[in-house]
Structure formats: C-alpha cells, structure tokens
Design a protein around this nucleic acid. Structure first.
Lengths: 215, 215
DNA sequence: GCTTTAAGTAACTTAATGGTTACTTAATCT
DNA sequence: AGATTAAGTAACCATTAAGTTACTTAAAGC
C-alpha cells in the first residue's frame, strides 16, 4: 500500500508565505461563496499550494474560516479607531470604507446568516471595540457634535445601517438607485447624500444653523 | 434491473398540497442555510414528501430556490403597497415588518451574496414595485410629509437601510444594543427611536415645529 | 555532521448529496 | 369502462468534495 511520492518539491520553503497565501485565497473564496459554498480545493489551487497544507495549518475548513474572520477582525479593529469628528464627515467616510472593503462586509453577512445565536468568533475583543466606539459617540455628544437626545447605541446602529446596507444588498441598491454600488458616480452621490442627511444626528440648534446657511 | 417498488401510497393524492408543503419547507431550509448549505433531503423530509416529487415539480434544486424566491416576492409585492403616510409612521412599520418576516430579509440576503451581477429573478416586476414605491415618496414630498431636498431614491434606500439592517445583521445588532433583535423589548425601543429619528426625512419647517412641541 | 522537526507532495478514501431509474397507482379524459 | 396522464414511492447511482495516508525533503537544533 505504498504511494509513489516522487516529488517536485518547490526549491525553497516558506511557511509564513504559504500561510499568508492560504488566508488571502480563503478570504476571497469565502467572501465570494460563503462557508458552505466555498470549496477547499478551490482555495488550495487559488493559493497555489497543496491542499494538505491547508489542513496542516488550520485543521479543517471551519478552522480556516475562523482564522480568516479573525484576521479581518483584527485588521478592521485598528482601522475603526481612526474615526471621529462631525457626523457629516464620518458617515461618508464609513460608507466609502464599506465600498472599498466589500469583502469585509460580506464576511460579516455570511456570519450573520450562518450563525444562529452561538458565541461569535473573537466575541470579547469585538464587544470591546464596540464599547470604545460608543464612548467616542458619547464624547461627541458632550462636544455638541451629536444630539444628546439619542442613545449612543441607537446612533451607532443607525450609522452602521446607513453606511453598510448598500454594500450588503447591492442588488436592492441597484434596483432603487439605478446604478451599481461599485459605480464611482453612485458612490460620490451617495456620499453627498449622507453628508447632507447626517445633520439628523446633530443637535437641533446646530441643525437650524445649518439649514439657515443652506437657504 | 427491476426495482421492487411495492408501495404504501398515501390513500389520497393532492398535488396542490404537496407543492405547497415543498415550498414552505424549502423556504425554511433556504432561509436558514442558504442555497449551498440547504440539503434537498432535509427539505424533502421536512415537507414529509418523497424527494422525487421535488424534482417532479421544480426540476432541480436551483429551480426550487427560484420558485421559493418568486413566491415570496409576489407575496411581499402586494404587502408593499399597503404603506403610506408620515415617515414617523412608516419607519417603525417597516422595521416591525422586517422583524416579523426575517425569513424574507434573509432570502434577499442570500440572494445578495450569491448573485454576482447576473439578472435577478422576477427582475421586471420588482423594478416596477420599486418604481411605484418611489412614486409614493414623490407624492408625500408634494404633500409636505417628506422633504423635497432629497432625491426619492436616496430616501427609499435610507429607509430600507434603517429598517432592515438590524434583521440582516443580528449579531452586530446584539453587540451594539446588548439585546437580541428578536427581543420584544429591543423591537419596541428601536421602533421608538425610528419614530423620533424619522423627522430627519421631513421638511425643515415641520421639523422645527416638532422640536418645539417636544421641548 | 547527524538527528529531529516541520514543510511539502501526490494519491487515496469515504461520506454526503444531488439527481435518476424503474416502477405503482390514483385521478382524469374520452 | 378503458386508456392515458400525472402523482407518488423506494432503491439506486455518480459525483463531488472534505479529509487522510504515506511518503519526501528542506531547515532547525544539537
């Protein structure tokens, strides 16, 4: 029961590079097809590595999926801190970020659909990031940039909704807007709308000033 | 190559009922697991019909998926017409509708993730429904219920975003709000927020009146 | 330099799963 | 009433795809 096993091994080895190749190929495959739809063989050939290595590094398909998510999460985490200021700035900013990294939105969408109430990957870290985000909103409320009429959590959810929905539902967006989400023209126009609409989050007196300026 | 085929056929036949059972079982399975994740055998046993019937009526798995979507679309279509009036009423209304029919939101979410720019199922009818929705928004703008500052399409997309996002991303919602999307308490509170927030869509003078009343 | 460890390869196995074959029988049509 | 059609059943099959086995060889440790 011996196997042939005469090999044309790649001249040099490079565990780091192999791991990296697998992860980035897996992100593409999972973002495109989801967990159930993704094919391990497709990931392997996309990464141009032997399928066996994938099991070597990540145990199984699910382990790989989790690793991909985890990596993206930590990547985004650092990124998330980089925003502050007026809603008229942050809304377009987050919208553009979602457009640029649609794979990230899609990964969370797959997560949303797959997961039925179990514990999430990196739950703790993610909650901590959310908590820091809420804190920043509170600060902006204190500074008068955001209305104190609203619960910070409501504000965060509303902002996420407005900025991510078009990327999460590109087919509905295209139907409503008549343009692809990835059309630069749509992105510019939507950013402009969000900038205008963002006054909804500001305190009433600031709103009135803005409205008077505008007229 | 004969098969045994001694059968315990159900006493009565009922094509309509069988079709219906398959469709409703398939909706549950597809909404829960998506196209790739759904199992034809699971649908058959859930519907308590022979798997063969599923192929008899719908050709193949994809045909069944399309049939399920199509059915839900026409169901929702009629429903969609039933809304009009102030944004302070429609936003909570649509949010509650999304919560009640999470399967529908999930189906569109699966569609969003699967579909990469190909033609959609029932594309024409859906666009027509969107067009009618936009027309209703224009009417409300004319009546002064919605600000004419905004493009109706921007308004529709923003409203969809605000009302559907929590159902589409329950895990993020739970992280931000600390409550499950399906917790009645969350639903009440969110409806209240949306009602308050809806003034953002109203004309500036109406907003000012509301703000003065509130204070 | 020699041993051990870990990266790498190719072929293989096995369970799951979409779809089919071959048949039976209730309902419908003429 | 007899023929035809369509609903229904059970067993089967082919393929796909996750995961393994059995091996090779480059690099790290001593």
């Amino acid at each position: 029961m011996g196997r042939p096993a005469k090999t044309d091994v790649a001249a040099t080895r490079n565990p780091g590079r192999t791991r990296e190749r697998i992860l980035s190929a897996a992100l593409k495959e999972f973002a495109a097809k989801g967990f159930a739809g993704a094919r391990v063989d497709a990931i392997a050939s996309r990464a141009d590595i032997n399928k066996r290595m994938l099991y070597h590094y990540f145990g199984d398909k699910e382990g790989l999926f989790k690793a991909v998510l985890r990596r993206k999460i930590s990547e985004r985490q650092a990124w998330a801190e980089a925003s502050s200021g007026e809603p008229t700035e942050t809304l377009p900013f987050w919208f553009e970020a979602a457009c640029k990294d649609a794979d990230w939105v899609r990964m969370l969408e797959w997560e949303a659909l797959q997961n039925s109430g179990q514990k999430l990957i990196d739950d703790k870290e993610r909650r901590a990031t959310v908590a820091r985000g809420l804190e920043r909103i509170r600060q902006r409320q204190a500074r008068g940039q955001i209305s104190s009429e609203f619960d910070p959590r409501d504000v965060m959810l509303a902002m996420r909704s407005l900025t991510w929905f078009p990327v999460a539902f590109p087919q509905l967006t295209e139907m409503i807007m008549g343009k692809s989400v990835f059309d630069p023209k749509f992105q510019r126009e939507r950013a402009a709308f969000l900038k205008k609409f963002a006054v909804a989050f500001q305190p009433a007196n600031v709103q009135r000033v803005k409205i008077h300026f505008a007229k």
